[in-house]
Every structure is written in C-alpha cells, then in structure tokens.
C-alpha cells in the first residue's frame, strides 16, 4: 500500500507584529511544519512500521525555502518527497482551496496512492477544506477530522473515528482509496532521530512545476481575493493586575476570597 501525505510549511506569527497591506510584515513571520501535518506524517510512518504501507510519499506546495520542513518529514520516516513550485506561484498571497485542490490532485493522480493523509487544517489560513475537496475532485472516498485509524486496511476499508463536538466520536468505515484529514492527538509525533536526519539528506526530493503536472497556470488564480487584514477589535474590558508575581498573586488571592471560593 502506498500512502501520500500532504505537508505544508506554515507561517507563524510572533506575539507582537505589524500588518503591511494585506499581510503580516516579514520580520514578524517564522516558518514551521504545520502541526496537523506532523500527526499525519506520524500516522503514515506508523502504518509503514506496522507493515501496512510499503511507501510513504510527501507532497508540498512551496518555494525552495521550505525544503528544510520537507526534510523534517523525511527525517521522521517518509521515503521521498515531491515539492511543487512555479513562477506563477511567486507573490500569490493566498492560495485558495480550489487552487490547492487542482495542484495536489495532479500529483495524487500521478502517484496513485491508496491512502492520502492530510492535516485537518493549516495553522495559518485554516481553511480545513482542501482534503475533502481533493477527494471529491478525484473520486476518492474521504473522512474529515479523523482521530483514530485502525491499522488493518486489508479489505480495502479504513475504519476510523471522527472527532465530533462535545466529546462524541463517530465510528465510520471508509472505502479505499480515500483521503483522511488527520486531527491532532491521533498519535504522538516523534522527534526525528540523528540517524533519521542524516538519512533524510539522501532521500529523493523531486521538484516539479505546474507544466510538469499538466496544470494550467490559471489554476492558481484564486477565486478568493484577500482585501483586508487587521487586528480584531478587542472587546475586552479586562482588569490587568500589575506588579511583581507576589503582588499579582495576592490580587488573585483576594478575588478568590471575595468570590467565596478560597479554601
């Protein structure tokens, strides 16, 4: 069985930041492996260790800068990586769900995996929609917000749990091939070992452009246009206790006594 994992390098923002136009100013931005994707990678690697998956391939849309993040996925145990980048993607500040779907679907068609694992959402734009959109586009089955996957996919069925609201889980059987969007907490993502990090440097990382995939440049034209970005107006009427830890702790102590809940 072949598993494909979508891996995104997400932008992270410092506590204090400034907005320039419709983006956060560069100097306040960092980059990291998307938290949800980390769990998806781990699930795929565990399926491989359990002898269920033969090959784990990652796919990432991103510039050369994000190869460090891709190497993290390889160091954790993925076998090889595909990175998609194209001049037409330069300077695009928001790639919407349909654009991502077009690009990722082209790679998935080429790779023909039995199972695609994505994170539930990306930590930066948080659409939470691409995995299901890809599945519908390709005629794969799917399951969204999966927090348990039985490692027994023999009959061409993935038995999963979907994490609903309010502490309820739905038990669902999904026919393969399928896309599952993976929720945090499904497993415990490993740290890459030193050996893994060394091996990752030698694993194949194939770079493809939109032409190579047969995707038209127009696919990256988002339907969605980002027109404004601002800090949300705080509705806060919070009382901030100032001073050193002992003073603020004393304030909180007084509050608890006032409320009659102090021991």
């Amino acid at each position: 069985m072949k598993i494909l994992v979508t891996v995104k390098e997400v932008a992270t923002v410092e506590d204090e930041f400034e907005i320039e136009g419709t983006a956060i100013a560069d100097q306040y931005l960092g980059a990291d492996l998307n938290e949800w994707d980390d769990y998806a990678i781990e699930e795929a690697v565990q399926l491989q260790e359990d002898g269920i998956a033969d090959e784990v391939v990652t796919v990432t849309i991103g510039p050369e800068d994000c190869e460090q993040t891709i190497r993290q996925a390889l160091a954790k145990g993925a076998d090889r990586a595909v990175r998609i980048w194209d001049d037409s993607l330069e300077g695009v500040d928001l790639l919407d769900v349909n654009a991502k779907t077009e690009i990722l679907s082209a790679v998935i068609e080429e790779e023909d995996p039995d199972l695609v694992l994505t994170g539930v959402q990306a930590g930066d734009d948080s659409f939470g929609a691409t995995g299901v959109s890809v599945a519908e586009h390709l005629g794969y089955q799917w399951g969204a917000v999966v927090n348990h996957l039985e490692h027994d996919l023999d009959d061409g069925v993935a038995s999963v749990r979907r994490e609903l609201e309010g502490g309820v889980e739905e038990l669902t059987d999904v026919e393969l091939p399928a896309v599952l969007t993976i929720q945090t907490g499904i497993n415990e993502p490993r740290y890459a070992s030193l050996r893994g990090i060394r091996q990752a440097q030698r694993k194949p990382l194939d770079v493809q452009g939109l032409d190579d995939l047969g995707v038209d440049d127009s696919a990256v034209d988002s339907d969605l246009e980002l027109t404004d970005m601002y800090e949300p107006e705080s509705e806060s009427d919070v009382t901030v206790w100032e001073g050193g830890a002992e003073e603020t702790a004393a304030e909180l102590g007084d509050l608890l006594r006032d409320k009659g809940v102090a021991p």
């Binding site: 930590g123 734009d125 969605l224 027109t227 800090e231």
Partner: peptide
C-alpha cells in the same frame, strides 16, 4: 487567520 491573531476580509 493565524489562530485568531488577525481578521481578514475576502
């Protein structure tokens, strides 16, 4: 976006 740090219009 960014876990609620900013709001955007689209």
């Amino acid at each position: 976006m960014y876990g609620g740090k900013v709001e955007t219009t689209n």
